[in-house]
Design a protein around this nucleic acid. Structure first.
Lengths: 222, 222
DNA sequence: CTTAAAACAGGTATTTATACTTGATTTTAG
DNA sequence: CTAAAATCAAGTATAAATACCTGTTTTAAG
């Protein structure tokens, strides 16, 4: 069989180069595409003559000012423009919410960043030959989500635009009053959104909201 | 000159293996020691016959239940037990506070994880031959800290044990009252500590505290 | 096009966090 | 070993966040 052509989308250069070194040690794998951000990927790929078979995508890609562009968005975009490219998500955490959603949105696999290098090789191989790679963790996450849907528990509801706005501003240490001014709504409304956020994220107070935002890459730390 | 013997302390296996692959591509570098946590390093090294010349240490190492053991602690321990080993810190963020403190505590260099692989190679080489590696970012951090000391602005005061305890419990979404119960002190005292935390971290509210804790690896996300 | 559901906006009462002080105890430096 | 400084503890008054509820607008499905 021919070499597997691999694309890497990962902002941490050192990490990206590291994976590249690991992959290229295998004679049947070749890294033919690299990017440090998500938003330029689709465009760049359209200009390429040869396209990757498998894309390794970091879930927590940095956002540029105007557009959110994390691994989830990129997965959607790739699915739309290049449905033949398989996507393997790499993530910092085993985030059940995102795992299930990513698979739903078209990713073919999910791995945490502290996986064994051999597991990455295996995953790429299986995705390329069998079309997908699901490990126990991923399976569990999907089952959990399905389970909750059936139970109607809605453990991981999706946040609305407004809620995300409020959450982001909250993470900038603004008070409800200040957020109200910025969004031209009443303080009471802001608190309403915050209450919904608390419920949806299963948090007790702003602390939980901030941690949620950090975990889900809704805000950038630093 | 003989090969440079390198030790790696990094919890993310994939990242560790990646760096290893990059380093071992250089004929004059050899990885002779690896660890996924901080607390076992000193012990393991004492049993080794050959010890690394340079140790690459991840700043944000996971804590085991009883003891904190991040890159800072490990640097101190290495400095004490094996003063001849040079320490190069790898960190997620360019954290000015920690950069300065780490250099103070005995680290010979500091790099962010999105550095160019060549910079890591250079840094290791310079640390081994010249004894230290300071890039612009690190220098700036040190200057800032010194500058602030002179100005008396105390931008980055060190937190006390009690304050860190309160901060950690705060990050677990406990209210001041609950923290008071756990620590067997008054709610008023807890709030006192929180106020000191707000000042020392230049935060406006708990949001700032949580973000500070995340940035400084005082709490683990996930 | 209508209708149900979701999202948004706003309100009141209560709980919790923050600002600002003060005194006791423990550390640190000379 | 003492003096100064840092830390810990606690108090009052005020500002902000949270719990719970209601009506309006926007979206999506039939």
């Amino acid at each position: 069989m021919a070499q597997i052509k691999i694309g890497l989308v990962e902002d941490q250069l050192l990490f990206r180069e590291g994976i590249k070194a690991i992959l290229e040690a295998h004679p049947d794998m070749e890294v033919i595409f690299e990017s440090g951000d998500g938003y330029s990927v689709i465009n760049s790929l359209q200009k390429c003559t040869t396209r990757p078979d498998v894309m390794l995508v970091d879930l927590s890609l940095p956002a540029d000012g105007t557009k959110e562009y994390n691994g989830l968005n990129l997965t959607l975009g790739l699915q739309e423009h290049f449905p033949s490219i398989k996507v393997l998500i790499l993530s910092m955490h085993a985030d059940e919410y995102f795992i299930a959603q990513l698979i739903e949105e078209g990713a073919q696999g999910y791995l945490v960043k502290d996986s064994d290098p051999q597991e990455v090789i295996d995953a790429i191989w299986k995705i390329h030959t069998k079309g997908s790679y699901i490990n126990e963790r991923t399976l569990k996450a999907i089952q959990n989500k399905l389970g909750n849907k059936i139970k109607g528990k809605k453990l991981n509801e999706t946040l609305t635009k407004r809620e995300i706005e409020v959450l982001k501003l909250t993470c900038q240490q603004l008070t409800a009053e200040e957020i109200a001014e910025r969004l031209f709504i009443s303080v009471k409304t802001v608190n309403g959104h915050r209450n919904n956020l608390l419920q949806k994220t299963n948090s007790r107070n702003v602390t939980g909201l901030v941690l949620y935002a950090v975990k889900h890459n809704i805000v950038d730390i630093l």
